[in-house]
Protein backbone atom coordinates (compact mmCIF):
# COMPACT_ATOMS: atom_id res chain seq x y z
CA UNK A 1 0.00 0.00 0.00
CA UNK A 2 2.75 2.45 1.02
CA UNK A 3 4.87 1.50 -2.00
CA UNK A 4 1.85 1.90 -4.29
CA UNK A 5 1.09 5.37 -2.90
CA UNK A 6 4.72 6.42 -3.20
CA UNK A 7 4.95 5.00 -6.75
CA UNK A 8 1.80 6.85 -7.80
CA UNK A 9 3.23 10.06 -6.41
CA UNK A 10 6.44 9.56 -8.37
CA UNK A 11 4.58 8.91 -11.63
CA UNK A 12 2.54 12.09 -11.09
CA UNK A 13 5.66 14.15 -10.31
CA UNK A 14 7.34 12.94 -13.51
CA UNK A 15 4.41 13.08 -15.92
CA UNK A 16 3.12 16.45 -14.70
CA UNK A 17 6.37 18.10 -15.74
CA UNK A 18 5.85 19.23 -19.36
CA UNK A 19 9.61 19.19 -20.01
CA UNK A 20 9.72 15.51 -19.10
CA UNK A 21 6.95 14.75 -21.56
CA UNK A 22 8.60 16.82 -24.28
CA UNK A 23 12.00 15.18 -23.89
CA UNK A 24 11.06 11.70 -22.82
CA UNK A 25 8.27 11.12 -25.25
CA UNK A 26 8.59 13.80 -27.88
CA UNK A 27 12.30 13.53 -28.57
CA UNK A 28 12.38 9.86 -29.68
CA UNK A 29 9.29 10.46 -31.85
CA UNK A 30 10.85 13.58 -33.39
CA UNK A 31 14.05 11.64 -34.10
CA UNK A 32 12.00 8.86 -35.65
CA UNK A 33 10.29 11.32 -38.00
CA UNK A 34 13.50 13.18 -38.89
CA UNK A 35 15.64 10.11 -39.51
CA UNK A 36 12.87 8.46 -41.53
CA UNK A 37 12.74 11.55 -43.75
CA UNK A 38 16.56 11.55 -44.01
CA UNK A 39 16.46 7.89 -44.97
CA UNK A 40 13.87 8.49 -47.68
CA UNK A 41 15.96 11.26 -49.17
CA UNK A 42 19.12 9.19 -49.51
CA UNK A 43 19.45 8.26 -53.20
CA UNK A 44 18.67 4.64 -54.00
CA UNK A 45 22.06 4.20 -55.70
CA UNK A 46 23.82 4.99 -52.40
CA UNK A 47 23.35 1.34 -51.48
CA UNK A 48 21.89 0.02 -48.21
CA UNK A 49 19.86 2.70 -46.39
CA UNK A 50 21.61 4.07 -43.31
CA UNK A 51 18.50 4.45 -41.18
CA UNK A 52 16.44 1.43 -42.22
CA UNK A 53 13.38 1.28 -39.98
CA UNK A 54 14.34 -2.25 -38.81
CA UNK A 55 17.42 -0.67 -37.22
CA UNK A 56 15.99 2.74 -36.41
CA UNK A 57 12.95 1.50 -34.44
CA UNK A 58 14.90 -0.60 -31.91
CA UNK A 59 17.61 2.06 -31.76
CA UNK A 60 15.17 4.79 -30.83
CA UNK A 61 13.29 2.50 -28.45
CA UNK A 62 16.56 1.99 -26.57
CA UNK A 63 17.48 5.67 -26.90
CA UNK A 64 14.14 6.69 -25.34
CA UNK A 65 14.93 4.72 -22.22
CA UNK A 66 17.99 6.89 -21.53
CA UNK A 67 15.55 9.56 -20.34
CA UNK A 68 14.62 7.29 -17.43
CA UNK A 69 17.99 8.20 -15.92
CA UNK A 70 17.07 11.88 -16.22
CA UNK A 71 13.62 11.33 -14.71
CA UNK A 72 14.92 9.21 -11.82
CA UNK A 73 17.94 11.41 -11.17
CA UNK A 74 16.02 14.68 -11.23
CA UNK A 75 13.21 13.34 -9.06
CA UNK A 76 15.53 12.06 -6.34
CA UNK A 77 17.90 15.03 -6.49
CA UNK A 78 14.96 17.45 -6.27
CA UNK A 79 13.43 15.49 -3.39
CA UNK A 80 16.78 15.83 -1.66
CA UNK A 81 17.28 19.53 -2.36
CA UNK A 82 13.73 20.43 -1.30
CA UNK A 83 14.13 18.29 1.85
CA UNK A 84 11.09 16.28 0.78
CA UNK A 85 13.26 13.21 1.14
CA UNK A 86 14.00 14.22 4.76
CA UNK A 87 10.26 14.31 5.40
CA UNK A 88 9.92 10.86 3.84
CA UNK A 89 12.93 9.49 5.73
CA UNK A 90 11.17 10.43 8.98
CA UNK A 91 8.10 8.46 7.84
CA UNK A 92 7.80 4.69 8.36
CA UNK A 93 8.96 4.05 4.74
CA UNK A 94 11.91 1.65 4.60
CA UNK A 95 14.85 1.78 2.18
CA UNK A 96 13.23 -1.10 0.25
CA UNK A 97 10.02 0.96 -0.10
CA UNK A 98 12.03 3.88 -1.48
CA UNK A 99 13.98 1.86 -4.02
CA UNK A 100 10.92 0.01 -5.32
CA UNK A 101 8.85 3.19 -5.23
CA UNK A 102 11.36 5.10 -7.31
CA UNK A 103 12.19 2.25 -9.74
CA UNK A 104 8.87 0.61 -10.63
CA UNK A 105 7.16 3.78 -11.95
CA UNK A 106 10.09 4.36 -14.28
CA UNK A 107 9.92 0.77 -15.50
CA UNK A 108 6.24 1.32 -16.32
CA UNK A 109 6.94 4.66 -18.02
CA UNK A 110 9.77 3.05 -20.04
CA UNK A 111 7.41 0.28 -21.19
CA UNK A 112 4.81 2.87 -22.23
CA UNK A 113 7.42 4.94 -24.00
CA UNK A 114 8.84 1.88 -25.78
CA UNK A 115 5.36 0.92 -26.89
CA UNK A 116 4.67 4.39 -28.28
CA UNK A 117 8.03 4.53 -30.11
CA UNK A 118 7.73 1.02 -31.56
CA UNK A 119 4.10 1.40 -32.58
CA UNK A 120 4.83 4.81 -34.09
CA UNK A 121 7.51 3.03 -36.13
CA UNK A 122 4.71 1.06 -37.82
CA UNK A 123 3.66 4.30 -39.50
CA UNK A 124 7.23 4.67 -40.76
CA UNK A 125 7.24 1.23 -42.35
CA UNK A 126 8.09 -1.24 -39.59
CA UNK A 127 6.31 -4.53 -40.23
CA UNK A 128 3.78 -5.52 -37.58
CA UNK A 129 4.40 -8.86 -35.91
CA UNK A 130 3.47 -10.29 -32.53
CA UNK A 131 7.14 -9.90 -31.55
CA UNK A 132 6.48 -6.18 -31.23
CA UNK A 133 4.77 -6.76 -27.88
CA UNK A 134 7.73 -8.72 -26.54
CA UNK A 135 10.03 -5.97 -27.83
CA UNK A 136 8.16 -3.53 -25.57
CA UNK A 137 8.89 -5.79 -22.59
CA UNK A 138 12.58 -6.11 -23.57
CA UNK A 139 12.78 -2.31 -23.95
CA UNK A 140 11.45 -1.94 -20.39
CA UNK A 141 14.14 -4.33 -19.14
CA UNK A 142 16.82 -2.37 -21.04
CA UNK A 143 15.58 0.72 -19.21
CA UNK A 144 16.67 -0.80 -15.88
CA UNK A 145 20.22 0.18 -16.85
CA UNK A 146 19.22 3.84 -17.05
CA UNK A 147 16.93 3.67 -14.01
CA UNK A 148 19.95 2.42 -12.03
CA UNK A 149 22.11 5.23 -13.41
CA UNK A 150 19.41 7.74 -12.46
CA UNK A 151 19.12 6.35 -8.92
CA UNK A 152 22.87 6.61 -8.54
CA UNK A 153 23.15 10.14 -9.93
CA UNK A 154 20.11 11.35 -7.96
CA UNK A 155 21.62 9.96 -4.76
CA UNK A 156 25.02 11.61 -5.09
CA UNK A 157 24.62 14.66 -7.36
CA UNK A 158 22.74 17.96 -7.15
CA UNK A 159 19.75 18.42 -9.47
CA UNK A 160 21.83 20.71 -11.71
CA UNK A 161 24.59 18.12 -12.01
CA UNK A 162 21.99 15.42 -12.69
CA UNK A 163 20.79 17.50 -15.64
CA UNK A 164 24.33 17.55 -17.00
CA UNK A 165 25.09 13.89 -16.45
CA UNK A 166 21.76 12.31 -17.30
CA UNK A 167 20.44 14.92 -19.71
CA UNK A 168 23.59 15.54 -21.71
CA UNK A 169 26.28 12.94 -21.06
CA UNK A 170 24.21 9.75 -20.98
CA UNK A 171 21.98 10.76 -23.90
CA UNK A 172 25.06 11.41 -26.04
CA UNK A 173 26.82 8.25 -24.91
CA UNK A 174 23.72 6.17 -25.54
CA UNK A 175 23.08 7.84 -28.90
CA UNK A 176 26.57 7.71 -30.37
CA UNK A 177 27.90 4.50 -28.83
CA UNK A 178 24.89 2.35 -29.66
CA UNK A 179 24.76 2.82 -33.40
CA UNK A 180 21.46 4.74 -33.28
CA UNK A 181 22.82 7.83 -35.00
CA UNK A 182 25.75 6.27 -36.89
CA UNK A 183 25.70 2.59 -37.79
CA UNK A 184 28.75 1.03 -36.13
CA UNK A 185 29.53 -0.95 -39.29
CA UNK A 186 30.29 2.34 -41.06
CA UNK A 187 33.05 3.16 -38.55
CA UNK A 188 34.27 -0.24 -37.39
CA UNK A 189 37.72 -0.72 -35.82
CA UNK A 190 38.43 0.32 -32.23
CA UNK A 191 35.26 2.42 -32.01
CA UNK A 192 33.09 -0.60 -32.72
CA UNK A 193 35.10 -2.68 -30.27
CA UNK A 194 34.57 -0.11 -27.49
CA UNK A 195 30.85 0.02 -28.27
CA UNK A 196 30.79 -3.76 -28.02
CA UNK A 197 32.10 -3.61 -24.46
CA UNK A 198 29.57 -0.97 -23.34
CA UNK A 199 25.89 -1.83 -22.78
CA UNK A 200 24.20 0.68 -25.12
CA UNK A 201 24.83 -1.21 -28.37
CA UNK A 202 23.64 -4.43 -26.73
CA UNK A 203 20.43 -2.71 -25.67
CA UNK A 204 19.67 -1.92 -29.29
CA UNK A 205 20.65 -5.39 -30.48
CA UNK A 206 18.46 -7.08 -27.86
CA UNK A 207 15.40 -5.13 -29.04
CA UNK A 208 16.35 -5.66 -32.69
CA UNK A 209 16.72 -9.41 -32.20
CA UNK A 210 13.42 -9.80 -30.42
CA UNK A 211 11.68 -7.76 -33.12
CA UNK A 212 12.95 -10.23 -35.70
CA UNK A 213 11.94 -13.18 -33.51
CA UNK A 214 15.51 -14.23 -32.69
CA UNK A 215 15.10 -14.89 -28.98
CA UNK A 216 18.28 -16.96 -28.67
CA UNK A 217 20.28 -14.15 -30.29
CA UNK A 218 18.63 -11.61 -27.97
CA UNK A 219 19.60 -13.31 -24.69
CA UNK A 220 23.36 -12.54 -24.58
CA UNK A 221 22.73 -8.90 -25.51
CA UNK A 222 20.06 -8.49 -22.83
CA UNK A 223 22.30 -10.36 -20.40
CA UNK A 224 25.11 -7.83 -20.86
CA UNK A 225 22.73 -4.90 -20.35
CA UNK A 226 21.24 -6.45 -17.21
CA UNK A 227 24.69 -7.30 -15.84
CA UNK A 228 25.71 -3.64 -16.15
CA UNK A 229 22.35 -2.63 -14.67
CA UNK A 230 22.78 -4.98 -11.69
CA UNK A 231 26.24 -3.65 -10.83
CA UNK A 232 25.14 0.00 -11.13
CA UNK A 233 21.95 -0.74 -9.17
CA UNK A 234 23.92 -2.26 -6.31
CA UNK A 235 26.17 0.82 -6.19
CA UNK A 236 23.06 3.05 -6.35
CA UNK A 237 21.41 1.19 -3.46
CA UNK A 238 24.60 1.59 -1.43
CA UNK A 239 24.74 5.34 -2.23
CA UNK A 240 21.04 5.86 -1.45
CA UNK A 241 21.25 4.01 1.86
CA UNK A 242 24.30 6.08 2.77
CA UNK A 243 22.26 9.23 2.09
CA UNK A 244 19.45 7.83 4.23
CA UNK A 245 21.82 7.25 7.13
CA UNK A 246 23.27 10.75 6.68
CA UNK A 247 19.77 12.22 6.98
Amino acid sequence: MKILLFSKRNIKEILRDPLNLAFGLGFPLAMLAILTIVNKNIPADAGKPVFAIENLAPGLAMFGTVFMSLFAGMLIAKDRSLAYLSRLFVSPLTSKDFLIGYSVPLFVIAAAQGMITLFASLICGLAFTAWLFLAVVVTAFVSVLFIALGLLCGSVLSDKAVGGFCGALFTNLAGWLSGVFIPLELIGGGFKAVCGVLPFYHGVEAIKDVLSGDLIGMLPHLGIVLAYAAVIYIVAVFAFRKKMRAG
Binding site: E13, R87, V90
Partner: peptide, 17 residues
Protein backbone atom coordinates in the same frame (compact mmCIF):
# COMPACT_ATOMS: atom_id res chain seq x y z
CA UNK B 1 8.74 7.20 13.66
CA UNK B 2 5.08 6.30 14.10
CA UNK B 3 4.73 8.82 16.94
CA UNK B 4 6.52 11.80 15.47
CA UNK B 5 6.55 14.05 12.45
CA UNK B 6 8.64 16.92 11.23
CA UNK B 7 8.36 20.14 9.31
CA UNK B 8 11.92 20.61 8.01
CA UNK B 9 13.70 23.93 7.49
CA UNK B 10 12.84 23.79 3.81
CA UNK B 11 9.17 23.69 2.80
CA UNK B 12 9.47 20.01 1.78
CA UNK B 13 6.30 19.60 -0.26
CA UNK B 14 5.72 17.52 -3.40
CA UNK B 15 5.67 20.34 -5.94
CA UNK B 16 3.64 18.78 -8.73
CA UNK B 17 0.99 17.37 -6.42
Amino acid sequence: KKKINISPQETAVAENL
